[in-house]
């Protein structure tokens, strides 16, 4: 099993409330940009945080790019105290976002998502239109570059349908 497949399987099996966003969502919709991390928007409801902590715990989540001596404890309290976390795990990098630019929190992301089958499992993925909206709102250089590509993907998909 590929690491991303394993990571998705774990999140789904443990019933974590999440929506796939970012590069993997772009790939799922047809982008050709390589991405190394899984970005998800997660639910900050207390029960959901508990599920997320329990699901990722065995993968030893640690802060990515932070000094090695910076204390980090993977628990509900830490998640409650922060919002967005860029993590490394034993199955690869994962970014947890409590809010997505141009979209909002988990409920908004869920409403702006669709079910796509990834590795034979139904996953909630931000729609292409919502992804475009989020890239436009984030407006960093890399988002603007990705935006140009995603808009082309949208156009090509609509041409294909017609």
């Amino acid at each position: 099993m590929l690491p991303i497949e394993e990571l998705l399987a774990l999140l789904l099996e443990k019933e974590v409330d999440f929506v796939i966003i970012g590069g993997v969502a772009g790939l799922a919709h047809g982008s050709a940009r390589t991405t190394a991390d899984l970005d998800v928007c997660y639910s900050r409801a207390p029960a959901s945080l508990e599920t997320l902590v329990a699901a990722l715990g065995p993968l030893k989540p640690r802060l990515r790019g932070a000094p090695a001596n910076l204390p980090f404890k993977w628990d509900k309290r830490t998640l409650r105290a922060g919002l967005n976390f860029t993590l490394d795990t034993d199955l690869g990098p994962i970014d947890l976002l409590g809010e997505v630019a141009g979209i909002g929190g988990y409920r908004d992301a869920l409403a702006a998502s669709e079910t796509l089958t990834l590795f034979n499992r139904p996953c909630r993925v931000l729609t292409l239109d919502a992804l475009i909206r989020s890239k436009r709102a984030a407006n960093r250089k890399r988002d603007r570059e990705h935006l140009i590509e995603l808009e082309a993907v949208k156009k090509l998909r609509s041409k294909k349908r017609n």
């Binding site: 790939l27 799922a28 047809g30 993925v125 140009i148 082309a152 993907v153 090509l156």
Partner: peptide, 26 residues
């Protein structure tokens, strides 16, 4: 599509990606 092409994006890569399923892309 023209804008992406002008920006330097290889449209043939996008077309080849769109011919795959989401899982195949991953």
């Amino acid at each position: 599509v023209e804008r992406a092409k002008a920006y330097g994006i290889d449209i043939s890569l996008l077309e080849s990606s769109l011919a795959l399923t989401p899982t195949e892309r991953l």
